[in-house]
Amino acid sequence: MKININITLNSEPCTLEIDTRETLLEVLRNKMGLKSVHRSCLEGECGACTVLVDEKPVNSCLVLAATVDNKKILTSEGLEQKERIHPLMQAFIDNLGFQCGYCTPGILMNAYALLNREEEIDDQKIRKSLEGNLCRCTGYVNIVKSVQAAKKEKDSGNWW
């Protein structure tokens, strides 16, 4: 069945016609061309398709698009402002918080939600929060370091 949903996608309000069987992942990737949302395990186990729905990280492969009507969706494309790289992304580049880059957009979204949610963070909190995002390349060490570096940027006011 086709229905219309109204969402705010990366700060832009839009109305989308979707099939009720479609997942949020399918809609974002195939209809909206947001290729940072990686189609990966499709079982909610790897976290590569993580996006934010009303600021909360979700595995978009497990969410039916029909359920996000009237919600705010943020993907990593939406972190940039007028082509300006987000300080979180810059922190991942500076600290080599990625290698092959396949898990990276999902990890960025999860880390962004964490940093916006928590006033105080430590390594353990970062690790706990990223538990659902598998990375096979980095051993997570530089990911934790990148999130810590981003936290400093946020605290100094370089954040949006």
Binding site: K35, S36, H38, I85, M89, I93
Partner: peptide, 17 residues
């Protein structure tokens, strides 16, 4: 550059093509 491409969600993995 690659790091910009990957971190800014502009990668070209097979599934993206």
């Amino acid at each position: 550059k690659r790091e910009q491409r990957l971190v800014r969600g502009r990668s070209r993995f097979t599934d993206d093509c």
